[in-house]
């Protein structure tokens, strides 16, 4: 398995309690980002509800909720008596589901960009940068 990460989770999943966005959604997004950048790979252990809640100083019920959603989405799996892990198999997503999620995310991204007065070219450039960054991380992890 992977060597244990020594960085505290507070820096890897940046949860801002003061942020109006629900905390469970912040956790979810944080984990997704880690998965996308291959900082977390299939088979890695994610911290227990207890540990993550203690680290982040948030209600364990909230963490539990986030994990439940991710388990429901197939990203995480619970191994009885062992803990919670990143799913070995990538989630099978129906094309229609994938399209809906991406369209939703794109809508969010576009509305952020437009309301902040950015041009389409700027937005496209930013998208490319982010994609590269995440891919590089994956490469940099040595897999």
């Amino acid at each position: 398995m992977t060597p244990p990460r020594t960085e505290p989770w507070t820096s890897r999943i940046p949860v801002q309690p003061a942020d109006p966005r629900p905390i469970w959604s912040q956790i979810e997004e944080g984990l997704r980002r880690l998965l996308a950048s291959s900082a977390l790979v299939p088979g890695d252990a994610v911290p227990s509800v207890r540990d993550l809640a203690t680290d982040l100083r948030i209600n364990p019920a909230t963490v539990s909720k986030a994990y439940q959603r991710l388990v429901g989405a197939g990203l995480l799996e619970v191994r009885r008596g062992d803990g919670t892990y990143v799913s070995a198999a990538p989630p099978l997503v129906r094309k229609s589901e994938q399209a809906r999620v991406i369209r939703q995310a794109a809508m969010n991204f576009a509305s952020h960009a437009i309301t902040h007065g950015a041009e389409l070219a700027t937005a496209q450039g930013a998208l490319e940068l982010a994609w590269n960054e995440l891919s590089n991380n994956e490469e940099g992890a040595g897999r």
Partner: peptide, 13 residues
């Protein structure tokens, strides 16, 4: 304080 407190919440609800 918070560590133990949250731990208790996690363990016992």
């Amino acid at each position: 304080f918070f560590s133990d407190f949250i731990g208790e919440l996690a363990d016992r609800g």
